[in-house]
Design a protein around this nucleic acid. Structure first.
Lengths: 119, 119, 119, 119
DNA sequence: GTGGTCTAGACCACT
DNA sequence: GTGGTCTAGACCACC
């Protein structure tokens, strides 16, 4: 994984893990890698792994069982909620940004449709 | 102007000025405020103004005449190019983000159309 | 290091570091001194160090790992390219300047040869 | 004339006029343009013209006759001296720069010879 | 008055 | 400890 230097690494990895959870690559209730494994996987410092799980726990995306590891939440509702949150944030940013650049919603529709056709 | 604490002030102001140029609030070739004026306008330090103009110059958005001031580029092509660049970046991020969350392009179309209707 | 008062200190130091990289005093991929160390080394303000590394990064001479430090590029090709660029710029300026003063290329050859002999 | 933003305009113009004198475009004893004419010619501020002549006078390149204008020195020796000065400065900078980049004098000879052949 | 450079020093997030 | 940002304020050359 290549990191964008302007966004904290831990935020980028959290985002990545969230997407794996939402897309089903990681299932609800599944055990996440240990902090050491995570550190190896992403070539980061174990301290950063720690920070990642701590922050995800704070967001109720996962929970820790002492001596067993960190697990993805079982709450499917919560997972859907996260998906919706992330989507809304993307949509809002996109539309706000584009209208500030002088694009109308009608133009945005065309752009999306054309984008589909190009592919 | 209210600043988002997670993004450097100078980046936010650059974005703002770019939008003023794109929207025609500031015309091609027009003189931009002096670094001191800019500092007053946004309640920032003149050093930050300096950083803003230097970075914009690096992006060929403006140029400097020694002792006279900083001016928006006369190159209208360049201004259009910036608008397109900013738009493309927004579009790419949006579509990539949404598809990673499992949305299809068709769904994106519906979201945009609905967004329009809601208003 | 003694600074020439007519050229910004940060430009002179960049030039110096570039030469250290080209000559192999600093190796590709090697960690550069921290901004604070650089500040001490050259008796400059840490802000000036910052400016130096930022500009060098812009020129793809080095890259930054957050919280770890600034490193010389690993791209040996790039380093050779910089050497060639710096050389070409010197050659061009020299020949243009001398021909403007009315020297022919033949005369330049003689000057260089004599310069060698004088030593 | 296109100015390099990193060198004072007045220095660039002085350099340019010196070259015109050395190359014979402007003859010894010839009247130079008035400050106003010079300002028009180079699209600069008359203050800058003033500064240019003042500095050239200081270097004994020209002299002023009250009410008549500014004239190039009649002293051909002086003109040759300036030529030699400018040349020496170019040569010194070139050789110093190139040796710092690791080029030997022999290589410099080849570069100059090849440069000739390319043309 | 204008931008460019620099110092001094602070605060922050990241590793 | 590392870089990144920012403030405060100074000095300079240039136009």
């Amino acid at each position: 994984m290549i990191f964008n230097n302007n966004i904290p690494i831990y935020v980028q990895i959290i985002d990545n893990i969230k997407k794996e959870i939402i897309s089903g690559t990681i299932l609800p209730g599944e055990k996440l890698p240990s902090t050491r494994e995570l550190a190896l996987k992403y070539s980061i410092n174990p301290n950063t792994s720690q920070k990642i799980y701590k922050e995800m726990e704070r967001q109720n995306i996962c929970f820790t069982k002492r001596g067993l590891g960190t697990f993805v939440t079982n709450d499917i509702q919560k997972i859907n909620e996260i998906r919706q949150q992330m989507a809304n944030s993307l949509i809002k940013d996109f539309i706000r940004g584009m209208t500030e650049l002088g694009f109308s919603i009608e133009e945005l529709e065309k752009i999306i449709v054309n984008y589909n056709d190009e592919k």
